[in-house]
Each structure stands twice: as C-alpha cells, then as structure tokens.
C-alpha cells in the first residue's frame, strides 16, 4: 500500500486517492491545430522505469489534485505538491 503525504491532510493510504496518470505532458493551447502535438499529449508517454511525475486526486479527502513524484520500481514517493496550472515534472 502506497502512503501519500497530502500537503493539506497529512499522510494517508493510497486507497483514499484516485490515480490521474502522467504529469509530464502539458495541455496544448486550445487553439493549437497541430495534430502531432495533440497526439503526443493524448497518447504518447515517456513511461519511465524509475522516477515518474504523476497526478493523484485526493478523492476521499480534501478532493485536491496533487502532483506526486514516485519511483515506478521501488514505489518510493519522492515529493507531493499541489498541482498547479502550468506545472511540469
């Protein structure tokens, strides 16, 4: 069981959170008509074996979106911070 230290609620069990996926790709400008950039954003992933930046939603807690840096092999959580617009990992 992962333990995620929510900056608002403290350290909680993973079952309180919903996984929001890779946080490394930024949302393109809505007016952007380049198919390649949208394809990259919607479908293509770095998928690293190791350190991974990802979103988690504290669904059964404060309901805030968080940006977590976690290792995909050891599951060590390196950092947890509130997700802000324009953030990149």
């Amino acid at each position: 069981m992962l333990r995620i230290a929510c900056p608002y609620c403290g350290e909680r069990d993973q079952v309180e959170f919903a996984y929001g996926g890779d946080a490394s790709e930024g949302f393109p400008e809505l007016a952007d008509s380049d198919v390649g950039r949208w394809t990259k954003f919607v479908f293509v992933r770095e998928n690293p074996r190791g350190v991974h930046g990802e979103y988690w939603h504290h669904q059964y807690g404060c309901r805030q979106w968080l940006r977590v840096v976690r290792d995909t092999v050891t599951h060590q959580v390196h950092s947890v911070a509130p997700a802000r617009q324009g953030d990149r990992t």
């Binding site: 991974h52 092999v73 599951h75």
Partner: peptide
C-alpha cells in the same frame, strides 16, 4: 494495480 509500475510484486488493495 492502478498506477504505473514495473515492480513484479503487487499491492494489497
């Protein structure tokens, strides 16, 4: 298990 993982072990939930 619900999140990216390369660890061949598995989680309890």
């Amino acid at each position: 298990d619900g999140y990216n993982s390369y660890e061949q072990r598995g989680d309890l939930p």
